[in-house]
Each structure stands twice: as structure tokens, then as C-alpha cells.
């Protein structure tokens, strides 16, 4: 039972990450590969604030949110001045830079060793220690995230983002502040990634630089695209499929040594197959715009 609760909690944490990625890559049409960097930053800041400074989980979450959103806003001013294709490269560079910074020996992050012994979240005398309580907390926060995501998808911001995705020059000529709107989407992505990091770290009780690898960013993007870019339920479906897939492979009896590689191959093939035959994802409706190309 505890195992199922664990899998459900991980699915929801990844669904929050995929929801964040959906703002930039799905609604805005800019493929971002730096979700994992913000995920790791959220995790590390929560770990340091709760473990070393003995702050409460909620205070740590708020401090992490403010710091990372400020960083995301500052970075996005430069990142979104680059053309779309270069934005992807820059987001990947950002991810790599954060990874190198976290993996370097010494310092607060303690390099590849990571940080251990992170205390569980506490709300007064209520400690979130059992798998049931952890899942309940994750579910409550996911419900809040869904509420925000639905509110944003009905707000003018979503319509402007869709206009930018379809025709940036047209949106700009219609008087929309393209970079400012994209920055908002980027800040939302950073905020949700930090929330996911802050949820994950007390749950796992340790954090290491593997949270910020390129593979992790690709996984988050795959979840978003496989579920359906720009859709409301797509990220949850994508996360459910891709998180449960390795668990199913475990039951099939594939040797542990090759299970990770087979999982990567399946992720990769899922991405390629999705792009070839179903670019709108499993339950999505939007397929990235089509361009005239020679046969």
C-alpha cells in the first residue's frame, strides 16, 4: 500500500513540474529545457533553509519562491530576446550551469554528495511523516496548482500567450508586450518547479545534483508533450504514464542494470513517435503550428 502511495505522490510532483513546463512550452510555444534547474534550486533552497537554518517548511517555500521568481524574471529579460531556437539552447545552458554549480565539490550544496537528513514538513505539531500524510499534502497543493492553472488559462494572459505562440510578430504589432508576457509564463514555470522541488525534498529526505540533469528536463518536457501541450489535464496524464512506466518495467523482470537505459529509450521513442504521429499528445488538442516545408 505504501508503495502505491509513494508512486502516486511522485506522479503528482512530476505533474506539477509538467504543468509549469506547459506554461512556457505549451502555451507560449518556446521549448524550455530548464525546468529541472528550477526544480533543483527549489529543492536545495528548501533543504538548506529547513535543515541548516531550522526554518519551517512553509517559510522555506515562501523564501525559495521569492528568490527563484526574482531570478527567473531577471534571466527571462535576456533569454527571451534571443530567437526561439536559441532560447532552447540558452535554457539548456542555464540547466547545465545550475547543474555544474550544484555538482561542484564544497560549498553549501556539498557537490555530488548532496544534502541528507532533511526534516519532514511540519505545520505546528502536525508532522508530514507517513506516506498517507505526504500524499495528502501533495494532493492538496496539486489542487491549488490546478486552481491557479485553470484561472490563468481563462485569464487574458493565456490568450496573449497563445497569440504569441501562433504569430509573435502579429502579437507584437497588436501592441502586446511580448517579452513581458513570456517572462510571466517563465516566472510561473519557475514558481511551480520550485513548489515541486520543495515538496520533493522533505519527501525524499535528501537532495543531490541529479535533480538538475538534462535527462530530468527532457523527462519533464516529455511528460508535458506526451500528455498534450497546452491542455489542462495533459501534464497529469503524461506524468502518470512516464512515472508508472519504469515501475511496470520492474514487474516485467528486466534486469536492474539495463532498466534505466530501457526507460530512457522508451522516453526517447515516445517523444519521437509522438512528434511523428500524434504531435498533440495523448489527450491534447493542440499540435504545434505547421509550416510550409518542401516535400
Amino acid at each position: 500500500m505504501n508503495y502505491l502511495l509513494h508512486v502516486a505522490a511522485v506522479v503528482i510532483i512530476y505533474a506539477i513540474l509538467a504543468e509549469g513546463s506547459n506554461f512556457v512550452s505549451g502555451h507560449c510555444g518556446q521549448i524550455s529545457l530548464c525546468s529541472a534547474a528550477f526544480f533543483a534550486l527549489g529543492g536545495y533552497s528548501t533543504a538548506i533553509l529547513t535543515r541548516d537554518l531550522s526554518l519551517s517548511w512553509l517559510t522555506a517555500l515562501l523564501v525559495s519562491q521569492v528568490a527563484v521568481i526574482a531570478l527567473a524574471c531577471a534571466l527571462s529579460q535576456a533569454l527571451f530576446r534571443a530567437p526561439k531556437s536559441q532560447f532552447t539552447m540558452l535554457s539548456l545552458l542555464l540547466n547545465a550551469t545550475v547543474y555544474y554549480a550544484l555538482a561542484s565539490p564544497g560549498g553549501l550544496a556539498r557537490g555530488a554528495l548532496g544534502l541528507h537528513g532533511i526534516p519532514p514538513a511540519r505545520f505546528g505539531s502536525f508532522a508530514v511523516v507517513t506516506p498517507g500524510r505526504q500524499l495528502l499534502m501533495v494532493l492538496l497543493l496539486y489542487a491549488a496548482v490546478q486552481y491557479v492553472v485553470r484561472a490563468v488559462s481563462r485569464a487574458p494572459l493565456a490568450r496573449v500567450l497563445h497569440a504569441i505562440r501562433e504569430d509573435e510578430a502579429f502579437a507584437s504589432s497588436a501592441g502586446k508586450a511580448v517579452i513581458a508576457q513570456k517572462s510571466r509564463a517563465f516566472a510561473l514555470m519557475a514558481s511551480l518547479s520550485v513548489l515541486a522541488g520543495s515538496l520533493y525534498v522533505p519527501y525524499a529526505s535528501y537532495v543531490d545534483p541529479s535533480l538538475a540533469t538534462l535527462g530530468e528536463s527532457v523527462l519533464i518536457l516529455t511528460m508535458m508533450i506526451l500528455g498534450g501541450a497546452g491542455s489542462l489535464r495533459g501534464p497529469l496524464v503524461g506524468a502518470a504514464v512516464l512515472v508508472t512506466l519504469p515501475e511496470v518495467l520492474g514487474f516485467v523482470g528486466i534486469p536492474t542494470a539495463s532498466a534505466a537505459n530501457i526507460r530512457q529509450i522508451l522516453y526517447g521513442l515516445a517523444l519521437v513517435g509522438c512528434m511523428l504521429w500524434r504531435p498533440q499528445g495523448l489527450i491534447g488538442e493542440y499540435a504545434f503550428g505547421r509550416e510550409a516545408r518542401p516535400k
Binding site: G268, A287, E291
Partner: peptide, 23 residues
């Protein structure tokens, strides 16, 4: 290209291929 795919689609597919080759 035959499906008139957007560059973003090709980019994501190339990312998938990269993951497969690496694994």
C-alpha cells in the same frame, strides 16, 4: 518535413533521438 512539421516538432523529435542514442 513531409508532414509539414513545425521546427519545434523537429526539435523535440531530435531530443528524443538524442536520448535514445545516448541510452
Amino acid at each position: 518535413r513531409r508532414r509539414n512539421a513545425h521546427p519545434v516538432v523537429s526539435l523535440v523529435a531530435s531530443l528524443g533521438l538524442f536520448v535514445v542514442i545516448q541510452a
